[in-house]
């Protein structure tokens, strides 16, 4: 491989990694606080992508970036209610049950999408999709650059919010010590729902940033789930910084692995890195504990 290709590969990897960061940030938050594995993550991402698609279509014609606040807020509200109304309520305090419920919800969501929106693949065509930033031998499509930068920004904002707001502190308290938090008067159920809501709100943002260069179909969300899990574990469950570095790292590993070993066998780099990290440093790169 020539230096040019390696360089371009790294840049491509970083851009792809930006997307993984976005999807993983929500997952890591949910995991860090609720200690559950959200099996509905891919399906909820898919629903958010459909929201972006329908907002973009006539008659609304809303640009996906302009729709970002709306979709994010909507995703938060939807997820908050979903947690309060279904997940938290039916889980009876057992983590295994949350896993099964989110699995059931994922089946419902995928097939509801199939029923109402058909199985057809939908794309949106924005005028800036073909613009580029040329960086030496690498071409960076504008929407990917935007999503990359936005993912950095979102991570930073979330980190600040968690550090300095009361709700943020309460979330961290609940994540560390449920019982203790309850004792000092924190409404733990409400915090759970808020954390779930924010986790899914991140997916809303991810959907807006993804749609200009990806597509949506009832199964399209699942393309990012496995990789998001990998990112979360690699970075350390519950760590934003970890999700950020982990996502970018995985993007680069995937990209270079693909260039070196071919796109098919190169895919092996992701689970392999995942396994090695877990075996050598089970708490992930940035995990505490």
């Amino acid at each position: 491989m020539s230096a040019d290709i390696v360089f371009a590969g790294v840049v491509n990897g970083l851009m792809a990694g930006g997307v993984y960061v976005l999807v993983a940030v929500g997952l890591t938050l949910i995991y860090g606080v609720l200690h559950i594995i959200n099996f509905a993550h891919g399906s909820l991402l898919m629903l958010a992508m459909y929201a972006v698609y329908f907002l973009f279509r006539k008659p609304l014609g809303l640009d996906p970036y302009a729709a970002l606040p709306l979709v994010t807020a909507g995703a938060f509200a939807f997820a908050y209610l979903l947690y309060r109304g279904v997940i938290g309520r039916f889980a009876h305090g057992k983590d295994e049950n949350i896993l099964l419920i989110t699995l059931g919800l994922s089946i419902v969501a995928d097939n509801a999408a199939l029923f109402f929106f058909t199985g057809d693949t939908q794309t949106i065509d924005v005028s800036y999709a073909g613009r580029f930033l040329q960086l030496g031998p690498a071409l960076i499509p504008l929407p990917k650059l935007v999503s990359f930068l936005a993912s950095l920004l979102i991570c930073a904002l979330l980190g600040l919010w968690m550090a300095f707001t009361d709700t943020g502190k309460a979330i961290r308290a609940v994540a560390k010590e449920r019982q203790g938090a309850r004792l000092v008067g924190i409404d733990v159920e409400n915090i759970f729902a808020i954390a779930y809501g924010i986790g899914i709100a991140c997916l809303g943002a991810a959907a807006c940033l993804l749609m200009p260069f990806f597509y949506v179909s009832p199964s399209s969300g699942h393309a990012f789930v496995l990789i998001a899990f990998t990112t979360v574990v690699l970075g350390g469950m519950g760590s934003f910084a970890g999700a950020l570095i982990g996502g970018l790292l995985i993007g680069i590993v995937e990209s270079l692995g693909g260039l070196r070993f071919g796109e098919q066998l190169g895919q092996i780099a992701i689970p392999l890195v995942f396994i090695l990290v877990l075996l050598l440093r089970p708490t992930g790169l940035f995990g505490g504990r």
Binding site: F90, N97, L100, I101, L103, L105, V108, F115
Partner: peptide
Amino acid sequence: KNAQPLALIVYGLILVVIVAYLP
């Protein structure tokens, strides 16, 4: 038309209900 997805929606809901009432 294409009612088949409804079948899986019901399946998914039954799954949730089983967990909800038989934890």
